[in-house]
Design a protein around this nucleic acid. Sequence first.
DNA 1: CGATCAGTAGAACGATTGGTCTACATTCGA
DNA 2: TCGAATGTAGACCAATCGTTCTACTGATCG
Lengths: 185, 185
Amino acid sequence: MSPTTSPGPRERLLAAGQELFYSRGASVGVDALLKEANVARRSLYEHFGGKDGLVAAVLRRAAEDDLAWYEGALAGAAEPRERLLGLFDRLDDLVSDPAFRGCRYFATDLALADPGHPAHAESDAFRQRLRALLVRELQALGHDHPERAAEQLHLLIEGTLVMGATQDDPHPGRAARDLAATLLA
Amino acid sequence: MSPTTSPGPRERLLAAGQELFYSRGASVGVDALLKEANVARRSLYEHFGGKDGLVAAVLRRAAEDDLAWYEGALAGAAEPRERLLGLFDRLDDLVSDPAFRGCRYFATDLALADPGHPAHAESDAFRQRLRALLVRELQALGHDHPERAAEQLHLLIEGTLVMGATQDDPHPGRAARDLAATLLA
DNA sequence: CGATCAGTAGAACGATTGGTCTACATTCGA
DNA sequence: TCGAATGTAGACCAATCGTTCTACTGATCG
């Protein structure tokens, strides 16, 4: 149990899933995941019950990371209004990365047609937490209609991610930031 | 050649593809397409060369329909400004339909990992035509920065479609309309 | 009439899918 | 020291994928 113990198969599977599900979509084969994680086939089914379980577990973990990213992006400025506007600057950087492939949760939802798939619950949970974070921020800002404004900010965020994913727009974050600015006036 | 001749296999395949690719995604099996179209396996390969060809052909046809829909949505009002705002009302109706499953082109792009797939070219073409339509409308409106505003309107449209697809937002079109209104001021 | 052609119907293909199972290695605590 | 756990390695399975193929049918037209 030394602190430098190499991560076990469960951890490696989560890491491989986070990487491959994002870069190649939820349709990557189990074989590719096992190879990337250097893990035996059996370990996947013992730890996650199957591919579906891994997809859901990866989304759950990614939600933690992503929400922390949003918190960090908001922390870029002190003034309440600048905090939210700065978020779109960070988003613009994010989607400008050529490796950016769009919103993880939306892509997964689209890929998994079965509405009962456990991954959908994770997507919903993430979106609710993101929305709550926006509402909280708008309340701290003293906005008159935090719920309505959060809906609009959410729409701007999703729009930025889509525009960034299709790549034919160099700086969707800037376009969204300008719209957000009028919203926060 | 009577005018009531039932559509041939090519036409039925396009119709089946437009229906199934949208409702079940580009990953629907060839068997389901053939069954829906009531067409022999062989016809698919003679007319479209394979499933990839059908996917691309369906997107090309859908682009015509969808752009016509956008034109129609703009035609709802006479006053230039109301034309664009009315578009978001129509979008709100569209995404409120429980059968709405998001943007056809973006979903297809996400589903087809291979960047060389012919469907991507059709998606790009559609987006460019949509963008051109917005620019034209903004010019007619006498907007100071039609290109920039079109980018923002496009972002609002895509955002509306995403929010509508996830369903946890009853009226994303209204949120987008309000943002668009400030943009057109 | 007979040839051609577009169509249907469906068997069969090789590859790949997610999932199960057996055999063996390692670790670790009773 | 023995015996569970926990892991790896990989064969194997049934199902499904997109594709190719053969066999047959029904027009259309010289």
